[in-house]
Write a protein that binds this DNA or RNA. Structure first.
Lengths: 345, 345
DNA sequence: CCGCTTGCTGTAAAGGATTACACGAGGGGG
DNA sequence: CCCCCTCGTGTAATCCTTTACAGCAAGCGG
C-alpha cells in the first residue's frame, strides 16, 4: 500500500537515488572502475552492502558486451564417473570464479546436442565445455566455431583446445603389460571408432600389439556403445567365440559389464583369464581379485578443462590469442593388481 | 562493411521490420497469443523460422514477469549415484520443457549453499531443486521461502514439497528381515541425525528393532558423514568393538566403504556376518556374495522432483495453490540376496 | 590569463524481449 | 443512427545494467 511499484529487489537506480549519485557512478563503483573517487566508491559499496544489493545477472549479461555469467556443460551422460567427477570439479572451480554452469545431457544424440547448443547460445553463454556426440552435425560445428569451447574426453575436429585422457598411451602400455605376462591372444572390448576416443584407444591397442610383436589383426575385439549392458553382452559374445587369455577394456562405462561377464563365464581370474579394466577405481576394491586398472584422474581433467575454459574466455574478451587449440593430455596410470597374471600355457 | 551495426543475430525488431508489422505482434505470434489473426501468426512464424530466429532467453527472462528459462539444482555432490542419477533424469525432463538447469555443488557447506542461492536468485531462476546441507542458515531459509522449491533427499523444514526415499520403511523392513533370520546383535552404519534423512533412517532402524522385540538401545551404531572412507573406518571400528552378527548400511555413499571393511575383516559373509547395503545396484553385481540391497529408484525420484517443480512453477505463475508441501515418498525395495543368512549360533 | 589535459560524474542509449495501454475498425443492440 | 463492445494491432514503457559520450571543474604549462 505504501509503495507504488512493487519492486522485486533493490537495483542500481535505488542505490543511485538514495545516495544522490547517478546509476553510472554506482555501476562503476561496484565494478571497481578506477574512474570513481575512492571515498565515493567506498560509500557506494558500503551502502550497497547494507541494502543487500545483488546485481541482476540477467541484465548484466544482457547489457555487457562480455560477461561470464553462464557457461554451458554439454555431456552425453552425467551418471557415470567419467562425467560426474568432471562435472563436480568443474562446477566447483567455475563457481569460485562466479560463473554458473548450465548442465545439458545429450545422451549422444546429435539432434539433442544441436538443440542444446541452440538453447545455450540463446542464453548468451560465455563459452562451454562439450563432450561431442558421435556424429557432429554441420550446424553444431558452426555454433561451436563462434565461441570459446573446450572439448572434453572426445574431439569433434574443430579448432578448440580439448582435455583428454591419453588413452592411446594407456592402451599401449596395457597391452605391453599383458604381452609381458606371455599373453598372445588378447581380447578388447571398447567403444566404437566413431567416438574419437574409441578410435584412439583402438589405435593404442594395435600399437601395443605391434610393439609386442603380435599381429594386430589377431586382436579379438568388440566395439559397442559405452553402457554396462552392452559391455556385458559384448564380452559374453567375445568369450564364447574366441579363445583369448586376456581381456582389455577400453571405456569406463563398459568396465562393470565386462567384469560381470567374466565372472559369469566362470573362468578363474587370473589363472585362466587376465583382465584389465578402465576407469575410476572407487568401487573396484570390492572385486575379487582386485582388478588391474587403467586409472584416470578425472579431477585433474576437470581442473585442466576449467582452466582452459577460463583462459579461453579471457582471451575471447581481450582479443588475445587464447589457449592453443589441440589436445591437452592427462596421462592415466596403469595400476597392476590381482586380475592380471601369467598366461596359461 | 555493408551493415552499419553489427548485430549478433536476428531479433524481433528485424522480423517486425521485414514483415511490416510491430514487435508486439511478432512477440505475440511467436508466443501463441490468441490475440493475433491466425494467418498473420502463421506468416510470422514461417518467416521467423526461415530467418533462423531464436529468442534471447536473457532478454526474455529479464522482461517477462514470469519465465521458466532457468532453474537451479543445488546438491552437495554430483559424483555419487544418489545425485548424479537424479541430476541426469531431471536435466532430461526439464530440458524437454525448455528449461535449463544451473548446477551448483555445495559439498554440504552451509555457507556455500547460501552463496549459491544468492547467485541463483540473482539469475532470476524460476525455481529450484535443493538437497539442503546439514545446517540451513536463516538467510538461506528466507531465500528458499520466497520461490518455488522442491526438496530432494533431505528436508530443511520449510513449507515446500519434497521427494524422498521412504527410508524409515526400508530400514524397518531391513531390520525385520535380519531379525527374521535370527539376528539379535545388529550393527548400523548410517549418516548423522543432523541430516534429515539420517535421522529418519535411524528412526526406521529403531522402529524395526522394537517391532522385532529387540531393545533399540542394544543397537551398535556409527553415524558418519556420507563418504566411502568414513564408511570404511566406521565399520572397521564397529566390527572391532562389538560382536554384531549383521551390519545394516544407511546411506548410498557409505555402502562401498562398509563392504570394503567387511571384506577386510575377513569374516565370511553371510556365515559369520550378514550385510544389507543401501543404494544403487549398478555395480554390486561384482561383489561376492551379491549383497542384499535396499534399492532406491533414483530415476523415479527424479521424475517426481521434476514434475513437482514444474507444477510449482505453474502454480507460482498462476497464483494457484500448487503442489502440496510435505514429503512425497518413493518406496525403496528390499532385494534379498546372498549377503544375508541365518544368524550364527 | 588562456587553452588543454586530466579526473570525475551525469545523461542517455543500448541490449532484446514482453506487455499495459491506446486506438481504429466493424458489428450488434437500442 | 448512435453507442458500446470486441478484435487486432501498434506505441511505448518496462525489466536492470553497462557504457559511450558529453560536460564540468580544476590544474598546469605557456
Amino acid at each position: 500500500m505504501s509503495g507504488r511499484t512493487r519492486r522485486a529487489s533493490v537495483g542500481v537506480v535505488d542505490l543511485a537515488r538514495e545516495l544522490g549519485v547517478s546509476t553510472a557512478t554506482v555501476s562503476r563503483a561496484l565494478n571497481g572502475s578506477p574512474a570513481v573517487r575512492p571515498e565515493v566508491a567506498e560509500r557506494i559499496r558500503k551502502h550497497a552492502d547494507e541494502r543487500g544489493y545483488v546485481p541482476n545477472r540477467l541484465a548484466r549479461a544482457l547489457s555487457a558486451t562480455t560477461s561470464r555469467a553462464f557457461v554451458g556443460f554439454v555431456i552425453p551422460y552425467v551418471d557415470t564417473p567419467a562425467y560426474s567427477a568432471v562435472a563436480a570439479e568443474c562446477a566447483r572451480l567455475l563457481s569460485a570464479d562466479g560463473t554458473q554452469m548450465i548442465l545439458t545431457i545429450t545422451e549422444n544424440d546429435p539432434e539433442r546436442e544441436l538443440q542444446a547448443l541452440r538453447e545455450l547460445t540463446a542464453s548468451r553463454i560465455a563459452g562451454l565445455v562439450i563432450s561431442p556426440s558421435t556424429h557432429v552435425l554441420d550446424d553444431t560445428r558452426r555454433l561451436l566455431e563462434r565461441q570459446p569451447v573446450v572439448e572434453l574426453h572426445r574431439a569433434s575436429g574443430i579448432a578448440a583446445p580439448g582435455v583428454f585422457s591419453d588413452d592411446e598411451r594407456a592402451m599401449t602400455e596395457s597391452v605391453r603389460h599383458l604381452a609381458g605376462l606371455g599373453h598372445t591372444r588378447i581380447g578388447y572390448v571398447g567403444t566404437p571408432e566413431a567416438l574419437s576416443n574409441g578410435a584412439i584407444r583402438l589405435r593404442g591397442v594395435r600399437h601395443g600389439m605391434a610393439d609386442a610383436g603380435l599381429d594386430p589383426d589377431t586382436l579379438a575385439m568388440r566395439l559397442v556403445e559405452p553402457t554396462r549392458e552392452l559391455g556385458r553382452s559384448a564380452t559374453e559374445d567375445l568369450l564364447a567365440r574366441s579363445d583369448v587369455t586376456a581381456v582389455l577394456v577400453g571405456g569406463g562405462s563398459l568396465s562393470v559389464g565386462v567384469a560381470e561377464a567374466v565372472r559369469a563365464s566362470g573362468r578363474r581370474v587370473p589363472a585362466e583369464l587376465s583382465l584389465v579394466v578402465y576407469g575410476d577405481p572407487a568401487w573396484f576394491s570390492l572385486a575379487d581379485p582386485p582388478p588391474t586398472l587403467i586409472r584416470v584422474e578425472y579431477a585433474e581433467l576437470a581442473r585442466c578443462a576449467a582452466r582452459l575454459l577460463l583462459e579461453a574466455l579471457d582471451a575471447h574478451h581481450s582479443g588475445m590469442p587464447g589457449p592453443e587449440p589441440g589436445p591437452h593430455l592427462v596421462v592415466p596410470r596403469l595400476v597392476p593388481a590381482g586380475s592380471t597374471g601369467p598366461a596359461p600355457d
